[in-house]
Design a protein around this nucleic acid. Structure first.
Lengths: 427, 427
DNA sequence: GTCTATATATCGATAGAC
DNA sequence: GTCTATCGATATATAGAC
């Protein structure tokens, strides 16, 4: 009856849209910080300044909020992939410019959809819908094609012929998408430049030959550490608590700590709840033991390498070696950390937060190494030491094993050729 | 490790079973009293003396509790139907004994599964599963067959040839199943005897001929009342509140008041919540208006007939006439009442409770008529006046329209032949 | 198996924009 | 006068812990 056009089924009006978008953004921020499972509707409502029940005016469920974020991300991802593929095929620009352009697009995407990036880590409860899973696993076909075409044309130009292009593609693909996790809230431009520089130019001013690196005292120390890791595996002490911890570790690695219930662990271990609580004191305790073991092992390994007295490049090379080995030897632990709220999201005194503090210490010691290397002219000044370390961590810890046939040796060699020597450098 | 057999997947032990059975029984009692929708898990937990969350150790959901009750009922119903059919086909006993046997089995079943009987009224929320609906609508094929065979053999013996056997079957089928609602907590034996006596023997000592009944002043009064009802329908005053009430009435009749949400009503009426609440003050108000109108109309009609000065049989005949007409003219209202917590279940000061109080007054005035008839020797002493009235109400208000082709006239005639003259009487 | 705490979600009802 | 977005209460259900 009212004159103004109040189309019943039409698109929501500006006012509504703003509020809906506001809730989506608020939820996105929380999902990014704490993950899907640890963000409650109460949290979202409180952050949006409304009652929990009122959220359901705008979204039919919590999952639907996440789904909206994922769909927006996927749409952008598809669009960027298409454009990236076209540009790679057209190539008015130099191969390097094409690659840098795609790296920037993807880094920018990651930054703009930080929440979706976190959600894609698939920290979803057991009850997650098929739809959720489908969206999380979405891969636009044109993206891998774009990376392939971009790196192929790049290969025809002057470049480091020994760099493994398959691993290079994988690195760009994974690292750019992970950008939001490693550089939260930062401007995409310098971050993407850093990624490109690190891979294409390399961070070493004059990288030693493989033989020299292999013989460095840092590398010798690193090899001793990894040998110890391998040995440690065999003397398994199967007391009952440890069995439970191993089971928990496997599940945490698959679904994330928050999304895993104590009942899940008990069931997988074939015990009842009561038995489980007789053997371990709490769910947090399980995670604490897992992460403390892991963190201490890493810290010890890092310190061994750092105290080897080798120059910066050799130390970083040995650290890369260590990371590649750790990512496989402690694959589950690494996944638990990646799925968890690794950063500022975790509240103090939680196992995850404590791990984060330790991890920060390791990061800082690497920063000192990089600083020293930059000061003494062995390392290029492509970015601040903090950013260089952050980008290096992002790249060193990628799951290269997912690229079929990529063993530890091949992976480490790839890191030498790209991160240190630069995929663009003609040798 | 403990010696006693703690079979993991085996059947629950006596102790557990008891607790589960206890919860089931407690829930059943509440479902019976208040209906499915108005019984909360909190209610059940409180009545069972445990915490609400603990219920989920034994049942995965509220619906599953109801499903268990319905399944038990359906199993018993199927068994009794089978036995009933066999006995009807074998017939060592007289036809009348066969019918009385089946009436008793079914009445007993109704009493033992009072909760399921109430659940079958289908007062289930919109969200009810297909499974729930299927169980509620379950009809063992052998049951209708058993009634058919039983009444058919009965027809070959000495009986009132003018009784409509189809309606007789329907009455037995429906009335016995409804027994628990009309005679809550009572012993099935006397109730089933009352049902059988009322239908087979009839309550009148010497029932007047149709012509005499048709000409009674009670019947004349009743016809005036129903004529008024029909006239009243036409002068519909379509103000907006009334439209809403009509819509609400239709939905309440389908799903029950408790299981209907205000949003359901608004949607069906094509208005938004705000508009609805501008026209009616509350959900309770909707029900109140519906039931008060209905109850006042019924009471006025009853009083007109009761004050006609006719003798008991004529008054009851006219009341039967009135009920048959009311059940059709006010079919929705009648269904709302049947679906609602018609009895002691409703808490005071609710529309349903107020209706119940009014309905009790009508019942009492009928009791006086029956008492008077019994005292003066016109009505048989087949039971107390209270029980006779209760059984009569149960029978008078059945939805005979569900039997195809059963018009008001045929239905009323049937009631004369059965309830008053007796289906077994040879004329 | 049960407790306590709390999660997600729905419902009746209303305030206030349009 | 109508509709949207909201509230406060409460429902069903799950989780960690014992």
């Amino acid at each position: 009856m009212t004159p103004p056009p109040s189309d019943v089924e039409g698109p929501p009006r500006a006012g509504d849209n703003t509020r809906l978008a506001d809730i989506r953004a608020t939820a996105g921020r929380l999902f990014e910080e704490r993950g899907y499972a640890s963000t409650t509707m109460n949290d979202i409502a409180a952050a949006a300044g409304i009652q929990p029940g009122s959220l359901y005016t705008h979204f039919p469920s919590k999952e639907e909020i996440a789904v909206g974020l994922l769909e927006a991300f996927n749409a952008d991802l598809a669009a960027i992939s298409e454009v990236g593929l076209k540009e790679a095929q057209a190539s008015y620009a130099t191969p390097e410019e094409v690659v840098r352009g795609l790296v920037h697009s993807m880094t920018d995407l990651s930054m703009r959809h930080a929440a979706a990036v976190r959600l894609r880590a698939y920290e979803a409860p057991t009850a997650a819908t098929e739809r959720f899973r489908t969206l999380v696993n979405y891969q636009p076909p044109s993206l891998s094609k774009a990376w392939r075409v971009a790196t192929d044309i790049f290969a025809s130009g002057p470049h480091n012929a020994r760099v493994d292009l398959r691993l290079l593609r994988f690195t760009f693909d994974q690292a750019t998408l992970a950008a939001a996790s490693y550089f939260p809230g930062q401007c995409p431009k310098p971050v993407s430049r850093l990624f490109s520089d690190m891979q294409l130019t390399g961070i070493a001013v004059a990288c030693p030959e493989d033989a020299a690196l292999d013989a460095s005292s840092a590398m010798t120390a690193a090899q001793e550490v990894t040998a110890q890791w391998a040995a440690h595996r065999r003397r398994s002490n199967p007391d009952k608590a440890s069995e439970l911890i191993a089971v928990a570790r496997a599940i945490f690695a698959r679904r994330g700590f928050e999304a895993t219930t104590v009942r899940d662990v008990a069931e997988a271990a074939g015990v009842r709840m009561g038995t489980l609580y007789r053997r371990v004191s709490s769910k947090d305790h399980l995670l604490r033991v897992i992460l403390e073991d892991y963190s201490n092992t890493l810290t010890a390994g890092f310190e061994t390498v750092l105290s080897s007295g080798s120059p910066a490049i050799e130390v970083l090379d040995a650290i890369a070696y260590l990371c590649v080995h750790a990512e496989r030897r402690f694959n589950e632990e690494a996944r638990v950390v990646k799925l968890g709220s690794g950063g500022m999201g975790a509240s103090p005194d939680t196992p995850m937060h404590d791990y984060f503090l330790q991890s920060e210490r390791r990061r800082r010691s690497l920063e000192h190494v990089v600083e020293q290397g930059q000061r003494s002219g062995y390392l290029r000044d492509i970015a601040t030491s903090a950013d260089v370390v952050q980008a290096a961590r992002c790249v060193f810890w990628l799951p290269y094993q997912d690229v079929d046939g990529a063993g530890r040796r091949r992976t480490h060699q790839y890191l030498r050729e790209s991160v240190f020597r630069g995929a663009c450098a003609s040798r």
